[in-house]
Nucleic acid binder design. Structure first.
Lengths: 340, 340
DNA sequence: GTGAAAGCGCTAACAT
DNA sequence: ATGTTAGCGCTTTCAC
C-alpha cells in the first residue's frame, strides 16, 4: 500500500508538518528529529504524492521544452541534458513540439498554458524568437529561459546565447587563412534568426580580410539537404567558381558536397565545404565535414538548471542574465588549403 | 484571476458536480444545461486545474516515453506522433531517457516510478525488452504499451510490432531477384533484439533462394557508422568479394559505402549496399540509400492512443493486443542489378 | 522547534 | 437529471 505523509508522521511520532519540513529541507527542525523522520520515510518507502504537492504548493514540478525541430539531433541532445538536470532536482520535462513555420501557434500556446500547469518553460530556437509565445508566457507569468542567438533583442528572460555570428566569422577566417579568397555562402532558413547571424559573420570575416563579396556568391537555402545541392549548383555554375563554400548547417554542407560531386567537382580537392552544428551526419559522410561544434547537451542542462534556480528564487540569477555558449571549429576532411 | 470550477458553477447557476460532468463528458446532463455550463466556462476562460484533477481522480494525465536513443531520428519522430495523440486527448508526454547498455537502470526505474505518477508508459526499443523495467511497471500496476520487435516473447502488455525479420527478408530477396548471389551482412548491436531478427530474415531469404551462406559473409557491428566502415572492410578484404551488402541500419550502410570507397570500390557499380530505417541520412549521402522505411511517427501516435484507450477502459483493447507496424522497401541509388 | 487546522480545486459516492 | 458532502495528500498559515 502506498504510504502517505500521515503514515510517516505517525511512524516517526511527529506531526505531518514536521515531516513536510524535513522533506523540503526547511529550517527549524532539530537534527535528531530530522533523522527520525528520514528513517521513518525510508522504512515506509514513502514517496510524496506529486499531485498533492502540486495542488497545495501551487507548483507542478514540471518544465516544458518548446521546440520546432530545427534538427532532430539538436533537440534530442538538448532534451537529454535538460532531463538530466531536471531529474537531479526533482523536476520532469514535458516535451511540446510546435509548428513554427506553418502551424497554428495559437493553438499550441493554448495547449501549453491552458492545460498543463508547467512551472517553467525552456524555449529553443527558433521558437525563442517568437514574440507571441514569449508575451503569452510573460502575461501568464510563467518563468522561462531562452536558448537563442546572441543578438536577440528580447531581454525579457534569462537566455543562453549561441554566438552564431562569431562562429561563422571564425569559420570563414579559417578558410581565408588557408588561402581561399573566393568563398561562397549558402543561407539557412529566413525564419531562423541564426541564418542571418551566420551570414553576418561570414560577411564580416570577408570584410576584415579586405575581400570583396560578389553578391552572386550568396545562395538562398533553408537548412535542408536539397537546399545544399541546389545552392552548390547555383554557386558553381557561373563563369567563375569559388574555391570554398560555407554552408549554414551540416545538412546543406552535405548537400553541397553531393551537388558538387554531381558536377564533377571533388571535395576537398576541387572545392572546400564546411558546415555548422557538428551533427552526427558530419562524421558520416565522405569526406567528413569541417564544421562548428557546440555543447548542446550541456546547454540543455544549463537551461533547465537556470530555470529551476530562478523559479526557486535562488540568488544570483538575474532577470536579464545572459550566458554564452561555447563553440569550436572542428576541422575535418571537407576543407583544405587553397591551391590554384 | 484564475477561475475555478466553483466560479463556473455559480456563473452557470448549477452545482460544481454538474460542471464536472459536462467537462468530463459524463452522461445525465440535459443538452441545455450542458450548453449553459460550456458558455460559462468559456466566458470565464476556465481551465481545469491539473493537479486538483489528478489528486482527486488519482490520475495524472501524464504519459512517459522511456527510451534509450537508438537513433535520434527514431526517437524524435516517435515523440512527435505520441505528443500529438496525447494532446488530442488531454494528456501530456514526459520524456525519460535511460541508459540501457551501460547505465544504472535501477535508478532510472526509481525515478520513473517513485517520483512522477504517470498514468502509463510507452516503452520503445530496446527498452521494450527489459525484463527489469517491464516487471517493475507490472508490479506497480502501471499500464504500458510496448513498441517492440515482433517475436518478443513477453506478452504482458499490448504491443506494436515491427516485423524486422520480414523486412530483412524482403530486402534481401530484392537483392537476390536483382541477380546478386553473394551477399554480405553487417549485424546490429547484440543488445537490440532487432539485430538478431534482421539477421534471421537475411539468412532465411538466402535459404529460400537456395543460396549458401559463407560464415565469412557476416560481419559484427553495433549500429554505428564506424561499425559499417569496419564491417565493409572485413567483408571486402577476403579472397572473394560479395556483390552486395545488407547493413542492419542506415548509419552502418553509410559507413559501408565510405569503407568500400576507401578500398576503391564504387557504390552501386562495384557493390550494392542497403540499409534499414530510412533515416534522413539515407537521402543525404551519395548514392542515396536503398532502405526499409517505417511509419515511425504514426507508430508513436498509435502507441499513445492505445495506451490511453486502454487506461480509460475503452473496449476493444485487449491485454495481449498486438498490432503490426507496416514497412516498405524504398529503392534508391545504392543498389543495382548484379552484372559480372 | 513543533503542531493543529484550514484549505488547494477537483472527483467520487451518495443523496435527492 | 442534479446537488451535497467528503475527501485526495500535501503546504501554508498561525498558534504554541
Amino acid at each position: 500500500m502506498k504510504s502517505t505523509i500521515t503514515d510517516v508522521a505517525r511512524h516517526a511520532g511527529v506531526s505531518i508538518k514536521t515531516v513536510s519540513r524535513v522533506l523540503n529541507d526547511e529550517p527549524n527542525v532539530t537534527a535528531k528529529t530530522r533523522e527520525k523522520v528520514r528513517a521513518a520515510a525510508k522504512e515506509l518507502q514513502y514517496r510524496p504524492n506529486f499531485s498533492a504537492r502540486s495542488l497545495a504548493g501551487n507548483k507542478s514540478y514540471l518544465l516544458a521544452m518548446v521546440y520546432d525541430n530545427p534538427s532532430v539531433e539538436y533537440i534530442t541532445h538538448l532534451q537529454k541534458g535538460a532531463t538530466q538536470a531536471c531529474r537531479d532536482r526533482g523536476y520532469h520535462l514535458v516535451v511540446e513540439p510546435v509548428d513554427w513555420d506553418t502551424g497554428d501557434l495559437t493553438n499550441d500556446i493554448e495547449v501549453l498554458l491552458g492545460r498543463l500547469p508547467v512551472d517553467g518553460v525552456i524555449l529553443s530556437p527558433p521558437i525563442c524568437d517568437s514574440r507571441r509565445i514569449v508575451s503569452a508566457l510573460e502575461k501568464a507569468r510563467i518563468p522561462m529561459v531562452r536558448i537563442c542567438p546572441r543578438n536577440s533583442e528580447m531581454t525579457t528572460a534569462p537566455s543562453l546565447n549561441l554566438d552564431d555570428a562569431a562562429a561563422a566569422f571564425d569559420m570563414t577566417t579559417y578558410l581565408i587563412e588557408a588561402g581561399h579568397t573566393d568563398i561562397g555562402f549558402i543561407r539557412g532558413a529566413a525564419s531562423h534568426e541564426s541564418s542571418h547571424l551566420r551570414e553576418k559573420g561570414f560577411r564580416r570575416a570577408l570584410k576584415a580580410a579586405d575581400l570583396e563579396l560578389d553578391p552572386a556568391r550568396i545562395a538562398d537555402g533553408d537548412y535542408t539537404f536539397q537546399a545544399g545541392v541546389d545552392g552548390a549548383r547555383a554557386l558553381l555554375s557561373g563563369r567563375t567558381q569559388p574555391s570554398a563554400i560555407v554552408a549554414s548547417n551540416d545538412d546543406m554542407a552535405a548537400g553541397a558536397i553531393a551537388g558538387a560531386g554531381a558536377m564533377g567537382l571533388k571535395v576537398p580537392d576541387d572545392l572546400s565545404v564546411c558546415g555548422f552544428d557538428d551533427t552526427a551526419l558530419a562524421s558520416m559522410i565522405y569526406p567528413p565535414l569541417t564544421t562548428v561544434s557546440q555543447p548542446i547537451s550541456d546547454t540543455g542542462a544549463l537551461a533547465a538548471q537556470l530555470l529551476i534556480d530562478r523559479m526557486t528564487g535562488k540568488e544570483g540569477v538575474r532577470e536579464d542574465e545572459r550566458l554564452s555558449v561555447d563553440y569550436k571549429i572542428v576541422i575535418r576532411g571537407s576543407t583544405r588549403a587553397f591551391k590554384s
